[in-house]
């Protein structure tokens, strides 16, 4: 067992333990912190697989942005933890059995000779980042633009969902302004024609504004 294998097994063990803690942690904040640890270990394994750029993106974008967002939301919400764990112990035996069966089945399939004896392809002589960048800017430029649109839509959607309107802002509601009819704003008042000799002072009608 050489050093690379040792590193892989250590990282894999940390990853699995952290993933187990994510789903069993009592406190959601602990779950998020364990998820951060799991993602970090996964980044380490990706570096072993010579995918440095993705490991970097995982740490910077995932841990740096998405997980911090999770952490913010978890800390913002005041959660009744005991009620949320209803049915945890009831479903634990069945869940564990199902998980073992899934691992067993996939393990049987994935440990065949084809996967065990596949040699590592020779590494390209340019860096991983340059390789991905060249592919992204040539062959995958259209999916790349599409991913940008998806991110933009998600950004706008998140803002629309959580925006509650500015307090005491001087802005009108455009929909209401379009929907308005003349009858809402204007009242036509019938007035008798002025006579030459008023017998008594006429009651003045209130005009519409």
């Amino acid at each position: 067992m050489n050093f690379t294998d040792f590193v892989f097994f250590v990282l894999a063990a940390i990853l699995i333990i952290a993933a187990l803690r994510v789903i069993t942690a009592r406190n959601p904040v602990h779950a998020v912190l364990n998820l951060i640890l799991a993602l970090f270990s996964a980044g380490g394994i990706w570096i072993l697989l010579e995918a440095e750029f993705l490991a970097m993106v995982l740490v910077m974008v995932y841990i740096g942005a998405v997980m911090v967002l999770f952490l913010f939301v978890v800390m913002m919400l005041d959660i009744d933890q005991d009620r949320l764990r209803q049915g945890f112990w009831r479903y634990l035996p069945l869940g564990v059995v199902m998980g073992f069966i899934i691992v067993l089945e996939l393990g049987l399939v994935l440990s065949n000779r084809y996967f065990l004896e596949m040699p590592v392809a020779p590494a390209p002589d340019i860096s991983n980042t340059r390789l991905l960048g060249a592919l992204l800017a040539s062959e995958y430029v259209y999916p790349f633009e599409l991913a940008a649109v998806v991110l933009l839509v998600a950004l706008v959607g998140a803002v629309v969902l959580t925006f509650r309107g500015r307090k005491n802002g001087h802005h009108g509601d455009p929909a209401a302004q379009i929907r308005v009819r003349a009858a809402d704003r204007l009242r036509i008042v019938q007035m008798p024609v002025e006579k030459d000799e008023p017998a008594e002072p006429q009651k003045e009608e209130q005009g519409a504004c």
Partner: peptide, 25 residues
């Protein structure tokens, strides 16, 4: 690596099972 991925996948399936009352988990 593939079996590690399978173990992670199984853990998350079990996690959905166990924490099905808690949206954030």
């Amino acid at each position: 690596f593939l079996i590690l991925g399978a173990i992670l996948f199984a853990i998350s399936v079990v996690g959905i099972f166990l924490n099905r009352k808690n949206l954030i988990v």
